[in-house]
Amino acid sequence: MNSVQYVLGIESTAHTFGCGIASSEGRILSNVKSEYVPASGGIHPREASQHHASKAAPTISDALKEAGLRLSDIAAVAFSAGPGLGPCLRTGATVARALSLVRKCPLVPVNHCIAHIEIGRLVTGEDDPLVVYVSGGNTIISAYAAGKYRVFGETLDIALGNCLDTFARRLGISHPGVPKLEQLADDGSKFITLPYVVKGQDVSYSGLLTMASKLAGECDLRDLSLSLLEVAYGMVAEVAERAIAHTEKGALLLTGGVARSKRLQRALSYVCRDHSARFHVVPPDLAGDNGGMIAWTGYLALKEGLAVPVESSYVNPNWRLDEVDVPWRR
């Protein structure tokens, strides 16, 4: 137990199949991913899972190669057990179970949302931040309290990334849509009033998406993109501000696929300045879905004895982060 341990992590909740390797010293040795891009429309779960199945072997072998390790060096296999799309989760879990059986090593299920938080804590060195986690599937404001990550705000319907991606698709913009919307927005000048829906600590994006889509044929798309992003990000910034005022945390950590948005980063850095909080953004490679974050969180869980036998290694597409005990933070 004195020597360095290596944990291999598998991510497959949505469009990304990822494999990463983390060391017990907190280094991410490799982080390889393969992304499913639908020919048209949004993610088709079955097609995505077929993509994952076909890319699993090369992705894992690349991750081992990049880390300079062999499968026999791996001490445990961790996998994203939820939340996510059922067929995608099951593909990743099957791969992880197989590896664990071949290698005869522990198998560790990891909550995907918690992995986003833990990798952020690791790379920023910020021990106890308020977390703003925004992606295609999640919009969550969370902070640690008494053994669990508590949810201080979330979306009541669709996720921020989903709202923006869907709008971009409706304009005929190809994936990834958000950077292109941001470019359009940079040239916008007139603000168009759109539904700004904050309910308590929660946000709602479905009305915003409907209204923006409806106006797409009538307005200047630069102005519309500007207004959509300002309203969408303004809502997140407002609930983040409420949460930081309420929890009195000294730092804010931005993570998830939408974390790379410069406009959102700017909005949240204003919030932090007003509340004398430190502001951190997880670097893009580790902010979007990836296997490295699963590997690292798997290591944290392994240390606490949270490995499971293969027979009971279920996935849970609806696994909330506030259900999970996080004994490593006690």
């Binding site: 303004g234 501000e241 700017r266 949240l268």
Partner: peptide, 8 residues
């Protein structure tokens, strides 16, 4: 709020 567009 500095994080919001002035009109919004």
């Amino acid at each position: 709020k500095g994080y919001r567009n002035p009109d919004l």
